[in-house]
Nucleic acid binder design. Structure first.
Lengths: 117, 117
DNA sequence: TCTTGACCTCGAGTTACTCAAGGCGGGTAT
DNA sequence: ATACCCGCCTTGAGTAACTCGAGGTCAAGA
């Protein structure tokens, strides 16, 4: 598929996919004779994963390490697994943050309600 | 209290507090005779709120609007309330995102497990 | 008196995009 | 056949939100 469809499916913008590719985050992107990128279906799973990792706060450098490991083949799976497990711990922390922020907001809103009465 | 304590209590870094003040996000910061900032206890609640709003993804511009309303006094409370309610909807969206990312990670980790077996 | 520590300002650097300018090539309308 | 549009391409500049380093002030302790 073309880059526009890859963008639509992954959630990333076209520009962001190109940027990620330039930074080494998207390996194995084929090109047609006139230089246009071509994404195989399996190839579009990757931007989708990147989308979610970014959306939940994984830094570029970690994504780069992850992509580099991926490019090295299956024997790097234990390493990649660890990166994902680390990230899932970050997710837990973020969930707690949302919880706490919600408490702060709720308290603030209560104070506002009192002022409005 | 001094800026270092305000930083420790709010969660923001010293540099970030100064930056936020320059951008109009922290009103009413007093200065001592030699130019050092002085935060009253009520005054430190504000950076703390900013910390949580930022940490959960509120853009600077919205924070600026929020701070400007705050500086205008109590009659802007309904407006401020709406901003916080909007943000709390964003929080809900983020919670869903974390959930979805977790699913993606879990599926990926399962695939890794299969490969390792 | 000298030094240490916490503060100050200003300006440059960083991260992760995001967008605009200018150009190519393929398909469709005249 | 030519004109035009569309989606792609690259490069380089711009933006958001910090983050850091250099260089300077001032008060208090050894």
């Amino acid at each position: 598929m073309r880059i526009s469809e890859a963008a639509a499916r992954s959630g990333l913008k076209i520009d962001t996919i190109r940027y990620y590719e330039a930074e080494g985050l998207v390996p194995n992107v084929l090109r047609s004779s006139d230089g246009q990128r071509w994404f195989s279906p399996e190839n579009v799973d990757w931007p989708t994963l990147l989308y979610w990792l970014r959306e939940t706060g994984m830094p570029m450098k970690v994504m780069q390490r992850f992509a580099a490991l991926y490019a090295q083949g299956d024997e790097t799976i234990p390493n990649r697994k660890n990166i994902l497990l680390d990230h899932s711990r970050l997710l837990a922390k973020r969930r707690e943050d949302l919880e706490r922020c919600n408490e702060v907001l709720t308290r603030k809103l209560e104070i506002y309600e009192e002022h409005l009465r």
